[in-house]
Design a binder for these strands. Structure first.
Length: 526
RNA sequence: CGGGGCGUGGCGCAGUUUGGCAGCGCGCUUGCUUUGGGAGCAAGAGGUCGCCGGUUCGAAUCCGGCCGCCCCGACCA
C-alpha cells in the first residue's frame, strides 16, 4: 500500500488515509494482512490517484463527492442535490449576465415535429444520427413523428417566423433553460451524457453586423463567467469550418485545459447567418421597403461545465470548488470532548450566524454520529473551500481555526470580525485558484513548428499546442490523423467583442510549411 | 460502431478453475463507551447470485441465448 500524497498540513495523514493497493502489492500469503487491506480499502473508500488512472479518479470524485449517480438509463446520470446546487450557481450567474445584455427567458417544447426538424439540411445531417424519435402514443402510431430536441434552432426559428414582421421587431433576444437529448456513442458523467441540462440563447437581428456583435458578446459573457465564477482560464477563439456547429456560418468557443492536458470546449456561440431564416421563412420588412431574412445567433453552455470544474481544480483528495460556485463556502465543524459539547456547539452556532450575516454560504455540521476527523475528510472530498474548526482551545483563545481546501493552510481567525475575515479569505481562495489554473494552462501551452514537434508534444505531455496554419482543411485533417489532436480554435487577439483573431505572425503552417494565415491552438479534446 | 471488463445483501468484493450449507469488509439497526484528521466493543437485520432456457440427484459455479452497465479507440456541448 502507498500512503496518500504527502501534504504539508497533514503530517498524520499518511497512516490513516490509504489508497487502494495496486495489483501485486497485496501480500496474499498473510491472511491477516489481506484481511486488513480489504477492510481498510472498503472503509476508507479511496479515490484513485490522478496519476494512476485519470478517468477512474474523475468517476470517483463525481460519485464520492455526491454530485451525481448513474441512472438506470443508458448514458444518463441523476444530478444529485449537491451537483445540482453547483448547476444552480452557474445558472444564477449566467442568467444575471444574460439579462444584463437585454436577453429574456422563454421556454419552447421538448418535441420537434419531423417536418420542421428536417428543414435545414446541414443541421439535420449533423444531428440526425443521435436524435431519439417519438413515434407512438399508447399503441397508436402518430401521423407525424417527433424528435426529442438535441437543440432548438428549428422550433424556435419556426416561432420567430410568426413573431417577426418588421425591423422594429428586431432584435429578438431570447434564452431558454432546459434539457436536450443526444444519443452519443460514448458517455461520461457531466462531460457527455445522453440527456443534459443547458441554456440555449437564440437571437434574431436585422443585419450581419448586429448578429455578429451579439455572437461575440455572448462568447465574452461565457469567458467572463468561466474566469470570474468558475476560476477557469480559457482561450477564446473561432472554430475551423471542420469543427463548427452543424448549420452555423461561424462558431466561437471558449476552450479550457484540464489537468490531464486535454482540452474541453466550455461554451459556444454561433453566428448562424440567414440559413435557418431562409428555410423557416423568418423575414421582416426593412426600413428601405425590402423584405429581408433575419441574421441569427445561438449560444449555449451546459452541465458539462461541472465536469470542467472537477478536472481543473480537483486533486487526489477530491473536489476543490472555487468559493463563488460552491454551494457551501464554509463548513463549521465543532470539535472537542463530550463534556465540552454544549459550550462548543453554542459557539459554533454563533459562528454560523455571523458567517451567514456576512453573506457567506455557511453550514454547521453538528452531526453527532460522525467524528470530527471523518467530517474533515468528507468536506474536503466535497470541495468546500473553507473549514472552520471550533473547540475548547479556540474558545479559550477567542479564535476559530480556518483550514483552506485549496492550499491546506490553517489560520486562527479572531472571533471578532470573523465575517469579514472569512469573506476576505474566500476572495483570496477564488483568486488563487484562478492563478494556479492560469499558471497550469500557460505552462502547458507550447509552440510546435511542424507535425513532428506537434505529435511529440501531444504524445508526451498533451496540453495546448500553438502552431501556424495555412487555413487548408487538408492540413488540419493531417494533424488530427497524425497526432489525435484537433484544432481547438483560432484565438482572439484581444477581447472577443473586438473580433480580431490571431494572424500567422510569421509562422509557417504546421503541416505544409506554407506561410501561415492563422495562429491556432491544437489539443486532444474531450 | 469496434475492442475489453463486469453483473453475488445498500456499497466494495471473495466464491466460478475442480458443481455440494451464499461468505468477508464497509455501511445499516440497537445498546454502552467515545469525539482536535475517517472511534471501540457487543448483539442484530438484510440475498429471486442480471434475465431466460438447458445439463445434473443437486447450478452463483457447467452449456446456450439474451439484457444491462462501465472502461478504452473513430463522430459530438
Amino acid at each position: 500500500m502507498v500512503p496518500r500524497e504527502a501534504t504539508p498540513f497533514a503530517p498524520w495523514g499518511g497512516g490513516v488515509f490509504r489508497l487502494s493497493p495496486r495489483p501485486g502489492e497485496e501480500d496474499g500469503s498473510m491472511a491477516h494482512e489481506a484481511h486488513e487491506a480489504a477492510r481498510e480499502r472498503a472503509y476508507v473508500k479511496a479515490i484513485t490517484p490522478r496519476s494512476e488512472d485519470y478517468s477512474a479518479w474523475y468517476t470517483d470524485v463525481v460519485l464520492r463527492a455526491d454530485l451525481a449517480d448513474y441512472a438506470p438509463v443508458r448514458g444518463c446520470i441523476v444530478f444529485k442535490p449537491y451537483g445540482y446546487a453547483i448547476w444552480e450557481s452557474i445558472q444564477q450567474d449566467l442568467d444575471r449576465r444574460f439579462k444584463a445584455t437585454g436577453v429574456q427567458n422563454a421556454y419552447f417544447p421538448l418535441l420537434i415535429p419531423e417536418s420542421i426538424f428536417r428543414k435545414e439540411a446541414e443541421h439535420i445531417e449533423g444531428f440526425a444520427p443521435e436524435v431519439p424519435w417519438v413515434t407512438h402514443v399508447g399503441e397508436e402510431q402518430l401521423a407525424e413523428r417527433y424528435v426529442v430536441r438535441p437543440t432548438s434552432e428549428t422550433i424556435i426559428g419556426t416561432m420567430y417566423a410568426r413573431w417577426i414582421q418588421s425591423y422594429r421587431d428586431l432584435p429578438v433576444l431570447i434564452n431558454q433553460w432546459g434539457n436536450v437529448l443526444r444519443w452519443e456513442k460514448r458517455t461520461s458523467p457531466f462531460l457527455r451524457t445522453t440527456e443534459f441540462l443547458w441554456q440555449e440563447g437564440h437571437t434574431a437581428h436585422r443585419d450581419e453586423a448586429d448578429a455578429e456583435a451579439r455572437t461575440r458578446l455572448m462568447l465574452e459573457v461565457y469567458r467572463d463567467m468561466a474566469h470570474e465564477l468558475l476560476a477557469i482560464p480559457v482561450v477564446a477563439g473561432v472554430k475551423s469550418d471542420l469543427e463548427k456547429f452543424a448549420g452555423a456560418v461561424r462558431t466561437y468557443t471558449i476552450e479550457a485545459l484540464m489537468t490531464d492536458g486535454r482540452a474541453l470546449q466550455a461554451g459556444t456561440s454561433h453566428y448562424l447567418g440567414t440559413g435557418f431564416a431562409e428555410v423557416l421563412g423568418i423575414r421582416f420588412l426593412d426600413a428601405d421597403g425590402q423584405l429581408k431574412h433575419v441574421h441569427q445567433t445561438s449560444w449555449g453552455a451546459s452541465t458539462r461545465l461541472i465536469g470542467a470544474l472537477i478536472m481543473v481544480h480537483g486533486d487526489d483528495r477530491g473536489l476543490v470548488l472555487p468559493p463563488r460556485v460552491a454551494p457551501i463556502q464554509a463548513v463549521v465543524v465543532p470539535v472537542g470532548p463530550q463534556r465540552e459539547r454544549a459550550r462548543v456547539l453554542e459557539a459554533a452556532r454563533g459562528v454560523l450566524r455571523e458567517l451567514q450575516a456576512a453573506g457567506v454560504r455557511a453550514h454547521l455540521d453538528d452531526r453527532e454520529e460522525y467524528s470530527p476527523g471523518w467530517k474533515f475528510n468528507e468536506w474536503e472530498l466535497r470541495g468546500v473551500p473553507l473549514r472552520m474548526e471550533i473547540g475548547p482551545r479556540d474558545l479559550a483563545r477567542g479564535e476559530v481555526l480556518a483550514a483552506r481546501r485549496d492550499s491546506g493552510e490553517k489560520t486562527g481567525l479572531a472571533r471578532e470580525g470573523l465575517g469579514s475575515a472569512v469573506a476576505g479569505l474566500l476572495a483570496t481562495i477564488q483568486t488563487s485558484l484562478f492563478d494556479r489554473a492560469r499558471r497550469f494552462m500557460d505552462e502547458n501551452t507550447r509552440e510546435a513548428a511542424n507535425l513532428g514537434e506537434l505529435k511529440g508534444t501531444i504524445d508526451a505531455r498533451r496540453g495546448f499546442v500553438v502552431s501556424g496554419w495555412c487555413g487548408n482543411q487538408a492540413c488540419e485533417l493531417r494533424v488530427r490523423e497524425a497526432s489525435g489532436a484537433s484544432l481547438r480554435c483560432i484565438p482572439f487577439d484581444g477581447a472577443p467583442s473586438e473580433g480580431r483573431t490571431l494572424e500567422g505572425g510569421g509562422r509557417r503552417c504546421v503541416t505544409c510549411a506554407e506561410e501561415a494565415r492563422h495562429t491556432v491552438v491544437f489539443a486532444r479534446a474531450y
